[in-house]
């Protein structure tokens, strides 16, 4: 039997480029970074991304890159299962689809038909849509939900572009969520007061077992220290919180380690989110992925969303709340 690596073509061996964006400067910049990749011309990104019967699980071992221009609606209303952190006009947008990490619990595995990474290069169109909305109302916008934007900053500096775009726009508040240890990619920027860098933090046990390819906790914390030190607003996201053997000890260790390194008074706010996932996404994940403690846990369904039963959920929230409030004022902790 051949080893894993020897039977797979390398990730990003092929780059699919949508017709009409060949001359876009971002397309050119990305293609320059992959000189050995085969370029394949496509009419529409969905011709590749949305093919029937794709195997997400297999594709994760040899992801391809798809460059496209997003048409139609570019900003979406924030869903109820996500935190709005007390903000009105909560929207999210997807400058990219999919992520270079592979977390067992990630809803993207059930949401998208493909594991390939799509980057939309028409960033100016996104900016225009934001500006149009800002003419009517203020906006709280999350730009790194269906991807990890900072993790792919080496491929394309979208986080930096968004930060520069947001700078000085008082009615716009931006959240960039990440698990990466790639702060250095944007550390040259002057902090923007309306941009929040949000790090997802998980116990080391969870990172090792369920968050494949993500940086270890220590590295994430070191990145947070640097970002805070430089003057950025930083959000800590304990989301999703998972229920597993010895979960209480794992989260106790996580919180104590976090605040032994990070000055709590410098943290902008924090969130607690018990694992939850739309029914259809979980159904698809159960069908397409091998047995997993996370995917196959017997969750309870309420209103089309699977999560732990009330008893487990209550225990998790109570525990995390009591741990967090020792370090962060209660009005800065958001629970979902």
């Amino acid at each position: 039997m051949k080893g894993l690596k020897s039977c797979f073509v390398k990730s990003f061996s092929h780059i699919y480029v949508e017709e009409g964006i060949e001359e876009n400067p971002l397309t050119k910049e990305i293609l320059k970074k992959f000189p050995k990749a085969l370029k394949v011309r496509i009419k529409h990104y969905k011709d590749v991304f949305c093919r029937p019967r794709q195997n997400f699980f297999v594709q994760e071992s040899s992801r391809k890159l798809i460059l496209a221009a997003k048409k139609g609606e570019l900003l979406y209303r924030g869903p109820d299962i996500c935190h709005d952190f007390g903000n009105e006009n909560f929207y999210y947008t997807s400058p990219a689809l999919n992520c270079i990490y592979s977390c067992d619990y990630c809803y993207l595995k059930g949401m998208h038909p493909s594991a390939n990474l799509v980057i939309f290069v028409n960033v100016e169109d996104y900016f225009k849509e934001v500006e149009d909305i800002l003419k009517q109302k203020p906006l709280y916008l999350c730009i790194s939900y269906d991807t990890d934007l900072l993790a792919i900053e080496g491929i394309i500096a979208l986080s930096a572009m968004w930060i520069e775009f947001a700078r000085g726009k008082e009615d716009l508040k931006l959240e960039i969520r990440t698990k990466s240890a790639n702060y250095s990619a944007i550390s040259y920027l002057v902090p923007a007061s309306n941009v929040i860098l949000a790090w997802t933090l998980s116990p080391t046990e969870v990172i090792k077992k369920y968050e494949k390819n993500t940086p270890p906790l220590e590295l994430r914390l070191k990145n947070i220290i640097r970002a805070i030190g430089d003057g950025w607003k930083v959000r800590l996201c304990f989301d999703p919180v998972l229920y597993f053997e010895n979960w209480e000890t794992a989260y106790e260790n996580l919180i104590s380690r976090t605040f032994s390194m990070i000055p709590a008074d410098k943290v902008n706010d924090a969130s607690i989110g018990v694992f939850r996932i739309p029914r259809d996404y979980l159904k698809r994940m159960r069908k397409n992925f091998p047995p997993s403690e996370i995917i196959h846990y017997p969750y309870i369904e309420t209103g089309g969303v699977y999560t732990y039963d009330e008893e487990v959920k209550g225990k998790i929230i109570e525990k995390l709340w009591s741990l967090l409030k020792k370090h962060i004022p209660e009005d800065k902790i958001f629970i979902l």
Binding site: S6, F8, V9, S13, L38, V40, I42, D47, V48, V58
Partner: peptide, 17 residues
């Protein structure tokens, strides 16, 4: 109409359209 196989498995052939 165009079709796209998933180019995942390693091989030693040339590639083309």
């Amino acid at each position: 109409r165009a079709f796209y196989p998933d180019m995942i498995a390693r091989h030693d052939m040339k590639e083309g359209v």
